[in-house]
Write a protein that binds this DNA or RNA. Structure first.
Lengths: 225, 225
DNA sequence: GCAAAAGTGTTTGGGATACACCCATGC
DNA sequence: GCATGGGTGTATCCCAAACACTTTTGC
């Protein structure tokens, strides 16, 4: 800090890594940049945070405007991820970005957002800034989160089958799990209960639908995996 | 974000939560504020982050100047903790604070730092700003970190006894552990090795000294607790 | 010899892992 | 009747937890 010059803060920006599950693929929400730098490339939805707004307020406004996704209503869950502050990460000058990670149940993007799209995390386009590494970091955090909390509920519908639950874990963790062990263990955690409903989906036995007991984020009594 | 007015970022500040172990107490480094707001009260060491400096660069400079502690050389370990951004947290105006948490081996504070002191975390003075809740959050993070990494090495001397190791865990976790189970488990993790040296300390059997195999942060094969 | 911390093993219960077949449905 | 995904149980191993006495030293 220089005492001899007046204090000038860096630019403050916010960015969101928003995941959803589509079939058996984990996807992330991106927007296409409309202007330089990185015009035409894909990037995480984000923008400037001016004085007077908290990071989450600024982010909510920006993501809604750029993608049509409403963090307050469309997301099951959001948390602060990390603050990236490498001086050179934005070619326009020193910008510090506070990033958030969230999970949404499957969303259909509104028509007003032709420049926003979900991409599978294993088939991302070229990304602007350091956003590729931010996504990798978010995915690691999400995988860790699934092992010690009920965060997976944020990726599923209110009612879901045990196979869908297992698929969600497999998509985030990136590996296959044993069906019998998975069910036995998850049911003994007492996080979910059966509902009277069933899920019919083609030429096979219908599946029981389950629901989470709690809709808020809870820490597991013993960690998963 | 207002389009009609030029972009003005909030103030950016940095703060450090630096822990050390003193006997069987976990302590945290505080400085006494020399000016308003909160003049005379204790606070985490921190200050302004101007454009051009990364948060960790700014923090290193500030902590060295205010407390004499050199983050680069005196700390075994430091990591970003969280970014606090409530608009009202600083009475002078909207300030966003990027906080860091670190562990130091027992430090003797230099003479130039009569306004810096380590306080036991269970006997803190009144704290300025929202610093009390930041310390609580940091302590939770540190406790979690000890369960799945070798971070405890940052709180101990290079060579240490198994009793000192157990005391470190007990101080951070806030509960007592069984001596035989603790030793059995920790030794099977293959993180530490015996040294030829012993520690003599009064009228009782001397203790073997151990050392960590790796000085960098590693994730445990199975989590501790 | 005595006070004080270091050091050491066994038993038991629960959860993790590995593994293969029957069930209900649509066509 | 057959293809498709839903649903279920057992045996083994390893780890967590509970628990008390002997050893080495300084005085």
């Amino acid at each position: 800090m220089k005492y001899s010059s007046p204090y000038v803060p860096p630019t403050l920006t916010v960015d969101a890594v928003i995941f959803q599950l589509h079939g058996d693929k984990l996807e992330v929400l991106l927007t296409q940049r409309e202007s330089d730098p990185f015009k035409g490339e894909w990037a995480l939805p984000g923008g400037y945070n001016a004085v007077g707004s908290t990071t989450i307020e600024a982010l909510t406004e920006i993501v809604l405007r750029k993608t049509g996704v409403d963090l307050d209503n469309d997301l099951a869950y959001i948390e602060q991820l990390y603050t990236f502050d490498t001086v050179a990460r934005d070619p326009r000058g020193h910008a510090v970005s506070v990033t958030y990670m969230g999970c949404s149940r499957a969303i259909t993007l509104g028509t007003g957002s032709q420049h926003a799209e979900f991409f599978p995390v294993d088939r991302l386009p070229n990304l602007a800034y350091d956003h590729a590494s931010i996504i990798t970091y978010a995915q690691e955090r999400l995988a860790a989160k699934l092992t010690y909390t009920n965060a997976v509920s944020g990726l599923l519908d209110k009612k879901f089958t045990l196979s869908q639950l297992q698929t969600a874990y497999e998509a985030v963790m990136g590996r296959l799990l044993d069906k019998r062990n998975f069910r036995k263990k998850f049911l003994t955690l007492n996080l979910i209960h059966e509902t009277p409903d069933t899920w019919r989906d083609g030429a096979h036995r219908p599946a029981k639908l389950y629901a989470f007991n709690s809709s808020s984020l809870e820490v597991l009594s013993r960690s998963f995996d």
